[in-house]
């Protein structure tokens, strides 16, 4: 299948102190990818580069086979982007923004917009600047998702929202994905978004890409063992961290082969939660 979003060898130097890339990424229609990384890992910069708001030093980005930095700007209709901090809406009311945005998208779903405004209880007559951050995010979502663009890019869309609304959004997005040929790229620190929504995880650390993983592939790569006996100091194949008799491995096959060969028994083996895995991924790179 033709990727909806295609990024190859993307690199960008920002000021003197931050380098993004090289980034390679392909998004297939019908999938949800969570963009994960520590603070300052370059998630927003990456999303802005996809939107051609930041210009790459090197590499290519294509949306539905159109270069985003090319003369043809038709790709813009295929993306609905919700930035982390929205700029330019302060002076307007929700109603004005709706009238501005809706006619620009041929597949605008007015019913969905009305439903979201109602569910999230967003006042449309108030100026954007006068809304609380959580309500701003809700309005922003209500003005972004119904655009029904094939590629939905969300940059920490729920960071200020209450828990019920976060759950509601997950359900809305699941329903939104039913059409089959849409994709979501969502930068998020919310473990629920990652667990319930994502199919793939794209992990960034300080501008470097740590990997693009299928969720179960990632969880099956890690295992935790409780050993019957204490260990010598030598590092076991696959070992990531060790605490007394508990070790975590990112290569269970090798680890078990080694333990069996050495006659070391383990009393328990369990898989890791996704947040633990993410922590390991992001922490280990700091060393």
């Amino acid at each position: 299948m033709e990727p909806l979003l295609y990024i190859a060898d993307l690199e960008k130097q920002v000021m003197d102190d931050f380098h993004l890339g090289p980034i390679n990424l392909k998004l297939e229609p019908g999938t949800i990818t969570a963009l994960i990384g520590n603070n300052g890992s370059g998630k927003s910069t990456l999303l802005k580069t996809i939107m051609n708001l930041v210009k790459p030093d090197h590499g290519n980005i294509k949306i539905d086979n159109m270069f985003v930095h090319g003369e043809n700007e038709n790709w813009k209709r295929l993306v609905a982007y919700q930035p982390q901090t929205i700029i330019g809406w302060d002076a307007f009311t929700g109603e004005m923004l709706k009238k501005l945005i809706a006619p620009l998208y041929p597949d605008w779903d007015e019913a969905l917009f009305q439903k979201m405004v109602e569910l999230f209880e967003v006042p449309l007559g108030k100026k954007f600047a006068k809304l609380s951050q959580g309500v701003q995010q809700k309005l922003n979502l209500a003005l972004t998702i119904p655009r029904n663009a094939p590629l939905l890019i969300l940059d920490e869309p729920t960071s200020f929202m209450d828990i019920p609304s976060k759950k509601l959004l997950i359900d809305l997005l699941v329903e939104w994905m039913e059409s089959g040929n849409r994709s979501i790229l969502i930068a998020s620190h919310q473990i629920d978004d990652i667990k319930k929504l994502s199919d793939y995880l794209f992990v960034l650390h300080n501008g470097k890409m740590l990997g693009h993983f299928e969720k179960e592939e990632l969880t099956s790569t890690y295992a935790r063992y409780w050993l019957r006996d204490s260990l010598s100091d030598t590092r076991i194949p696959g070992e990531v961290t060790r605490e007394d008799r508990m070790i975590i491995s990112d290569n269970p096959m090798e680890t078990e082969a080694y333990l069996e060969a050495k006659g070391i028994q383990w009393s328990n083996r369990s898989s890791l939660e996704l947040d633990d895995i993410i922590t390991i991924l992001l922490n280990n790179k700091k060393m």
């Binding site: 939107m51 813009k76 930035p83 330019g88 809406w89 620009l104």
Partner: peptide
């Protein structure tokens, strides 16, 4: 809008929309 970027907010709003 950031360390060294100065811009009219209306431009940013426009850049997020499907217009050339």
């Amino acid at each position: 809008v950031s360390g060294n970027t100065w811009v009219s907010p209306a431009t940013i709003m426009g850049l997020h929309l499907p217009v050339a």
